[in-house]
Amino acid sequence: MSETVISAKNLSLTFQTNDGPVHALKDINLEINKGDFISFIGPSGCGKTTFLRVMADLETPTSGTIEVNGMSASEARMKRAYGYVFQAAGLYPWRTIGGNIRLPLEIMGFDKADQAERVARVLELVELSGFENKFPWQLSGGMQQRASIARALAFDADILLMDEPFGALDEIVRDHLNEQLLKLWARTEKTIGFVTHSIPEAVFLSTKIVVMSPRPGRISDVIESTLPRDRTLDIRETQEFADIAHRVREGLRAGHAYD
C-alpha cells in the first residue's frame, strides 16, 4: 500500500505576466501512494489545476522535482503513464463516442482487435454501452463527461488525473457520477488525482485531501480520511463525514482563502 507513485519535492512554478511574476506554486512537497484517491481543494488561483498539469507534464516547474512512477514527468508522459480528464469533455465532434475512445489507442498503436475490445470494455465501465456509434453532440453533458473518462481509461494507465471533471454538471448528475467513479476506482485499483472546489465532493471521494491556498499557491493542510474505502452517498449524513468536512473548511480558512 505504501508504494509511492507521484512525488513532488520543493516544487515551484512562477508565471511571468505583464503585471509581474505570479507564484502559481511555491515549495510544494507531496507524496501520493499507489491506490490513493487524492483530492486537491482550494479557491481559484491556489494552483490546484497547475499542480495537476505539472504532474501531467503540461506545465514545466520553475524549480524542484516531480517524479511519476519513478521517472520524470515528461518521460512518464511519453510512456503514457496516466489518463487525464479535463474540465470539459473535449470530445472531437467529428468522431463517434467509440471513435473518440479509440483516438488514444490509435495514437499509441494498439492493434484493431485490441482497440475494439478495449472500447467495449471501458464503455461498459462507464455505463455507455450502446452509445458507441452516437456522436458527442447527440449526448447529454453528463454522458459526454463519462465518455471522456472512458477515453482516459482505455489504455490502462495506472494513474488517472481529473481536473474538476464534474464542475459543469448539475448536482444530481454529479452525485450519480461520484458514486460511479468510486465503484470504478474500486474495480480498477487506480491511483486518482482529483481537483475540485466542492468540499462535500472532496470528502466523499478521497482517501487523502490536500487543501491549498493562493498567493503563492501552496499546500496548507493534508487530511487523511478516516472513512472506509467502500462508501455510499449515505455516508454524507454521518458525523465522521461532517468532522472531516469541518477540518477541510478550517484548512481553507487558515490559508486566508476567503480574503
Binding site: 501531467a56 507534464d57 503540461l58 508522459r77 511519453m78 510512456k79 503514457r80 496516466y82 489518463g83 487525464y84 479535463f86 474540465q87 470539459a88 473535449g90 472531437y92 483516438l103 488514444p104 495514437i107 499509441m108
Partner: peptide, 11 residues
C-alpha cells in the same frame, strides 16, 4: 483541451 489531450498522449 483538445490540444492538451494530444500532449497527454505524447502524440
Amino acid at each position: 483541451i483538445q490540444r492538451d489531450l494530444m500532449n497527454t498522449y505524447g502524440a
